[in-house]
């Protein structure tokens, strides 16, 4: 399936960040095949009607994070070694998820102890064999 990126203006998330997040999500979910090029900087800028520098900076960051790589003369492709987010990105996403979990919990009238208990029982049930290491050192498949 080809990659579709859509952006929203007026959001608290910058267009630059929106592109990075959507490419990461597509790569992680396997929606981007390794032999399928990403849209060109120009192409995506014209399609989304945004400044090409924004696309080019977002792609640059994705290359640094190891999510995509440039193949000379052919364009940008999702990295062969499938990458997980960089350490700061993982931390940011975790924080986002926990913040929304906690506030939702409080909103529904649960006590801190009850929320922690819920999380604890859920993590036990899920218990992966080992934690995923983050980029740039490792990366797992």
């Amino acid at each position: 399936m080809p990659l579709t990126i859509s952006i929203q203006t007026g959001s608290t998330v910058s267009i630059y960040r929106q592109i990075i997040e959507q490419v990461c999500a597509a790569a992680l979910a396997g929606r981007l095949r390794e032999d399928e090029p990403l849209p060109s900087v120009r192409g995506l800028a014209e399609q989304l009607v945004i400044n090409p520098n924004t696309v080019s900076r977002a792609y640059g960051e994705l290359v640094r994070e190891g999510v995509i790589e440039a193949r000379p003369g052919r364009g940008m492709f999702v990295s062969r070694r499938r990458q997980i987010y960089s350490a700061p990105e993982r931390a940011r996403r975790m924080e986002q998820a926990v913040t929304s979990l906690v506030s939702e919990g409080f909103l529904l009238g649960f006590t801190p102890e009850q929320i922690i208990e819920e999380v604890a029982s859920r993590t036990k049930a899920h218990a992966p064999s080992k934690a995923i290491r983050s980029n740039p050192k490792g990366g797992s498949r």
Binding site: T9, G10, I15, L48, V49, I50, N51, N53, T54
Partner: peptide
């Protein structure tokens, strides 16, 4: 128009 500015300005 700040939406336009967000799209094109650097």
């Amino acid at each position: 128009l700040l939406d336009d500015v967000e799209r094109v300005a650097d």
